[in-house]
């Protein structure tokens, strides 16, 4: 395998509703900043890959306008995944591995504030048997949380502690959306949003974009003093049906973590992008993280969740997709 590293990263702030800019206008400064910081031009980039969702944008081919922000001229070698930007990062990493590219631009963007996100996510479910019931994303997650609570896998206090930790960490992150000092008791006194989930158990809905520059070997060293080398990147998808998988653990995260070599050394920092507190606990356990690891120093997805752009960033990264942690990606980075 070739040595491949993240050499630059940029992001927009995560905001609940971006009213001035459309999706492309959110993305333009992010890509501009990335190129400026790395000191490169379009002509230096061999491969471009993006992640986004038509349903979030409410129109077909929504990703096409992303090319405007790239300034894709002369024509670029480009691909797109209808997935979170983390999987675009994966595809770019593959292209560098095969020698197709030396320098790849990856971006993810989403503006879920345009629609009703929890309801839209119901369209991810089996269209013949499940989706006609319109189970929204929060309710589906609540079913899982109820299972975990009733089986004693987590407690409501555990979940609140995750929220307190992430919100407090987010104070240091100027891009984060929800931040501040909360106490566990304060959160537990809140009413349920969708029982057993409280507002603080859910990630916010965020508009935003992020971009990453990936480079191979010496190219990475030329561009960056301290590249973040990708030592393992793996992703696994479970069956979707909630009845055929173990919802009390994240099996796909466990497999991906094992293959990516998470346990091969001490992990100092982990950035998890689980959208609900109980899911963050499951991911943390699946990764086998202990007290030596600082979890979500940025505040994680619970502090800002520009869906589709979550993970094209950060040090040791996790990204997820689908209901109840169906699909998970783990990336191990080293300085």
């Amino acid at each position: 395998m070739r040595d491949v590293a993240v050499v630059a990263f940029s992001q927009s702030p995560s905001v609940r509703r971006e009213t001035d800019c459309n999706e492309v206008e959110i993305l333009i400064p992010v890509i501009h900043e990335l190129r400026t910081n790395a000191g490169i031009t379009n002509e230096d980039v061999d491969f471009v890959c993006s992640g986004s969702s038509d349903y979030l944008a409410g129109q077909s081919f929504a990703f096409v306008s992303g090319l405007d922000a790239v300034g894709a001229w002369p024509p670029v070698c480009e691909s797109h995944v209808e997935m979170d930007g983390a999987w675009a990062l994966y595809e770019a990493w593959v292209k560098i591995q095969m020698g197709y590219a030396e320098l790849a631009l990856v971006y993810g963007f989403g503006k879920p504030s345009m629609g009703d996100l929890p309801l839209t996510m119901a369209l991810q479910l089996d269209p013949y048997s499940v989706m006609p019931l319109w189970p929204d994303a929060v309710s589906i997650a609540a079913l899982q949380a109820r299972l975990l609570l009733d089986d004693g896998v987590v407690s409501e206090r555990d979940m609140a502690e995750v929220a307190v930790r992430d919100r407090a960490n987010a104070k240091q992150n100027p891009y984060a959306q929800v931040k501040g000092d909360f106490s566990v008791d304060q959160i537990l006194a809140d009413p349920y949003l969708v029982s057993p989930l409280r507002k603080h158990d859910c990630s916010p809905i965020s508009d935003g974009a992020s971009a990453i520059l990936l480079a191979a070997g010496d190219r990475a060293k030329d561009l960056c003093k301290r590249p973040a080398w990708i030592r393992g990147i793996e992703h696994i998808c479970e069956p979707q049906d909630l009845g055929v998988r173990d919802l009390k653990r994240s099996r796909s995260t466990e497999i991906a973590a094992e293959k990516a070599g998470v346990r091969a050394g001490k992990i100092d920092v982990a950035e998890l992008s689980a959208p609900f507190t109980h899911q963050e606990i499951l991911v943390e356990r699946a990764l086998g993280l202990g007290s030596e690891t600082s979890i979500n120093p940025s505040g994680g997805a619970l502090a800002g969740n520009p869906i589709m752009a979550v993970s094209a960033d950060r040090a040791v990264a996790h990204a997820t997709s689908g209901p109840c942690l169906q699909q998970n990606l783990i990336c191990v980075l080293e300085g």
Partner: peptide, 18 residues
């Protein structure tokens, strides 16, 4: 996401291109 296991993709890496 809902089609993956019908084509043997359960607990494997899966990518969706568009």
């Amino acid at each position: 996401l809902f089609l993956n296991d019908a084509i043997g993709g359960a607990y494997k890496p899966m990518l969706r291109v568009h």
